[in-house]
Nucleic acid binder design. Structure first.
Length: 423
RNA sequence: GUGCCUGUAGCUCAACGGCAGAGCGCCUCACUGUGGAUGAGGAGGUUAAGGGUUCGAAACCCUUCAGGCACCCCA
């Protein structure tokens, strides 16, 4: 075999079958976003590294971003996430944009990680944000969008759950425990680890982070208190709203959800697959200072991001992706020999102008080969225009599914196609 | 960045240290005007690359490269 230049590690090729799945997911995203009244937008794939240096968390920028210098010696990065771009776009037109704004986007992102199941270096991400309002209504709407998306995909509440918490609530609870600001972000990491380590290891990790034994006990109690949300007026209102929206089956309180990114300030949430691998599907929350962080005035926002890789795995495992989602050709016109090529092309044109998806076989191969081709491409109807048909001003139409073939007057071709295709 | 596993035909995989194989797919024919089946034939390999051990290596050892999985982190 001739040597084929390999593809870049962590990238994916989308052959038509896979592209059809992606298309279906993207279409569902677009449909849900639009039904909630969100407008589509996008930013550049290339940004200055400085945009992310402002926030995002060190890990993401220093270790996971594709950074390189341009021929003009600018330090550029392939965007690892969209929220900073959004913050910039909003800050740039802060006084022109009618607030609150509802925006959504889907596009490619890059992170330099070790690829494995559910994770690639190049992936697509759905971002959706509601900027310019601080109410629980906004938080509830964003979570409702996520839940509605799952519903639209055919995922039931026993297959996927959105777990919600609130950073302000956790902040005050931690303050009560005497855990102060300096170790706060370290504590969030400790919280994040709870389900991943054994209790002994977890305690050791907590001590290492700077927590006292009594604080660790208190923290443990806190993290197992599933009624903690009742202490937060924001969350009480939030859950009321989710119930009014009829999506309470998809949403639950979980004090362990805290999120890694530094810029979240209020409500935070993550969606998980239930059972199976318990994979994290999407995550988001409220970020009230982000626009200010890139140089604008303070503007509160809430939103989430969902990668395409994990959701596709979840949808595959759940078996909810419809069959035959690709664009399927409906009709193929055969070419008997060179002398009949024009007649076949003419028929193809008529069929296409009538609105069907139609191809003409581009060679005068043996009919058997042409039929085999139509069969492989799953084209249901084949049109035959051989010397006999042409001489008699007729045309033959065969339905490959039912194996029925009829020879009719040439003028009745479109009517016959309509019949054949409804079978 | 760390650890474990794996690289053999287009794909999925066999082959005790002893001739490089099968299934599927592909091409041709049976079938000179008709597809999913069947039968007969055919093409396709530097066993990821390089080095070493051995009379002999796809197999054992080393290095590199690539892929998968887990950690880390996150979508």
């Amino acid at each position: 075999m001739a040597e084929i230049v390999r593809s870049v590690k962590g990238t994916r090729d989308f052959y038509p079958d896979q592209m059809a799945v992606r298309r279906w997911i993207f279409d569902t995203i677009r449909d849900v976003s639009t039904r909630f009244g969100y407008q589509e937008y996008d930013g550049p794939c290339l940004e200055f590294i400085d945009l992310y240096a402002a926030k995002s968390g060190d890990e993401l920028v220093k270790e996971q971003a594709f950074v390189f210098s341009s021929p003009g010696d600018d330090l550029l990065t392939l965007r690892p996430e969209l929220t900073p771009t959004l913050a910039r776009m909003v800050a740039q037109r802060q006084y022109e944009l009618p607030l609150p704004l509802r925006w959504w986007s889907i596009g490619p992102f890059w992170r330099y990680e070790n690829p494995q199941r559910g994770r690639t270096r190049e992936f697509f991400q759905w971002n959706i944000d509601l900027v310019g309002t601080e109410t629980a209504v906004a938080d509830a709407e964003i979570v409702a969008i996520a839940a509605t998306f799952f519903k639209a995909c055919g995922l039931a509440p026993d297959q996927v759950k959105i777990e919600v918490n609130n950073r302000r609530l956790m902040d005050s609870a931690l303050t009560t425990l005497g855990i102060d600001k300096p170790v706060r972000s370290g504590v969030f990491r400790v919280v994040d680890k709870l389900d991943k380590l054994s209790e002994k290891d977890w305690r050791a990790f907590a001590v290492e982070t700077g927590l006292e034994e009594t604080q660790i006990d208190g923290l443990l109690l806190l993290l197992n208190n599933n009624a903690l949300w009742k202490d937060s007026q924001e969350l009480v209102e939030f859950f009321e709203l989710i119930t009014v929206l009829g999506l309470e089956d998809y949403v639950a309180y979980n004090p362990k959800v805290i999120r890694g990114l530094d810029y979240y300030t209020g409500t935070v949430f993550e969606a998980f697959e239930l059972g199976g691998q318990s994979r994290a599907i999407l995550g988001g929350g409220r970020y009230d200072n982000l626009v200010a962080d890139v140089g604008g005035n303070r503007l509160p926002g809430v939103g989430f991001a969902m990668g395409d890789v994990v959701i596709e795995l979840v949808l595959m495992d759940a078996g909810v992706i419809p069959e035959m989602v690709g664009c399927k050709t409906q009709v193929m016109v055969t070419v008997f020999d060179e002398s009949s090529m024009m007649a076949s092309m003419q028929a193809t044109r008529e069929i296409r102008e009538a609105g069907y998806s139609v191809v003409v076989y581009p060679d005068s191969d043996k009919l058997g080969k042409q039929f085999k081709y139509a069969d492989k491409l799953d084209i249901p109807v084949v049109v035959i225009l051989g010397p006999d048909e042409i001489a008699n001003k007729q045309v033959a139409v065969k339905n490959l599914r039912t194996r029925e073939q009829v020879t009719i007057n040439r003028g009745a071709l479109l009517t016959q196609l309509d019949k054949s295709l409804t079978h």
